[in-house]
Amino acid sequence: MGSSSSPEIPPYKADFLKAAIDGGVLKFGSFELKSKRISPYFFNAGDFYRADLLRAISTAYAKTILETESSSAPLEFDILFGPAYKGIVLASGTADKLAELAPQKYGKICYSFDRKEAKDHGEGGNIVGAPLKGKRILIVDDVVTAGTAKREAIDKIRKEGGIVVGILVALDRMEKLPSPDGDDTKPMPSAIGEIRKEYGIPVLSILTLDDIIGGLKGRGSEEDIKRLEEYRAKYKASD
């Protein structure tokens, strides 16, 4: 992939896409998903373990949040919440980058995360970091697959008295959920669409599958682009 300035997608998205590909976080080929579908691409946010890659994803999350400020629905929140385990680093890194990019507004932004198991000694409890009670919470995580983990996070936050105002993930696959009867020709919503509908909150992403395809045009393999477009046509969600 060449220069990060792309006519198809905003520069911050192109920068993130380039970092993800160069760092081996976004791979192209043939991958079996949990749903048993064979995907022509695979994204693993757990591979952002190198300092330059962590900086790239934190910057992309922060710029996605800042982009909403010029929209009709800006994100207003008090705390970034990272579900254990991947979300812990993502939320803390994003808080740091927001404070750097927009210190007047985010210089003292807080973050929190949950424990997988409640601590029964010391300060105890399920939450580490800023107290959630009465605060507006933005969940920061890698992807939404079936939505189970995000529902668990929302439940934990609400039990602590927090108000979930949105979810921000790295990638929206724009992919429909598997049909209960296994018929993948049926129109089905995406996991992200189901969460939006169920909780009435925005679910935003740094990249979508459309962004990946647009960012690769003129730079990536024509074969990879063709396979991505075919996959999108076959599994595109109805929402």
Rank of each mutant, 00 (worst) to 15 (best):
G125Y: 02
K135R: 15
E152F: 00
V165Q: 15
E160K: 13
M188Y: 08
I127D: 13
G200E: 06
D184R: 00
K133H: 14
I154T: 09
A170W: 10
A118N: 09
R115S: 03
F113M: 06
R158L: 03
H121P: 12
R173L: 08
G147A: 14
G147Y: 07
G200Y: 09
V140L: 10
K119I: 02
T185S: 04
K119W: 02
K176F: 07
K197P: 03
K150S: 12
M174I: 04
R115F: 01
G129R: 15
D155N: 15
V128K: 08
V128I: 15
D114A: 01
R136M: 11
R196D: 03
I154Q: 12
I163K: 15
G122N: 02
T185W: 03
G122Q: 02
G161D: 11
N126P: 07
V144F: 06
K186M: 14
I192Q: 00
H121G: 14
I195V: 14
E160M: 14
E152S: 07
K186I: 09
K176T: 06
A170Y: 11
R158H: 08
N126C: 14
A118P: 09
P189D: 11
P180R: 11
V169P: 02
K159C: 03
E123C: 10
Y199S: 08
G122C: 05
G124L: 03
T145M: 09
N126D: 11
G125P: 01
P180W: 08
S190H: 12
G122K: 00
D141P: 08
K119G: 01
R136A: 09
M174E: 15
A130H: 03
H121M: 08
A146H: 04
N126F: 11
G124Y: 06
I167D: 06
I167S: 05
V169M: 03
P189T: 06
E194M: 08
T185P: 01
I154D: 04
K156S: 13
F113Q: 01
E198S: 05
L132D: 12
R151G: 06
L132C: 14
A170I: 11
D141R: 04
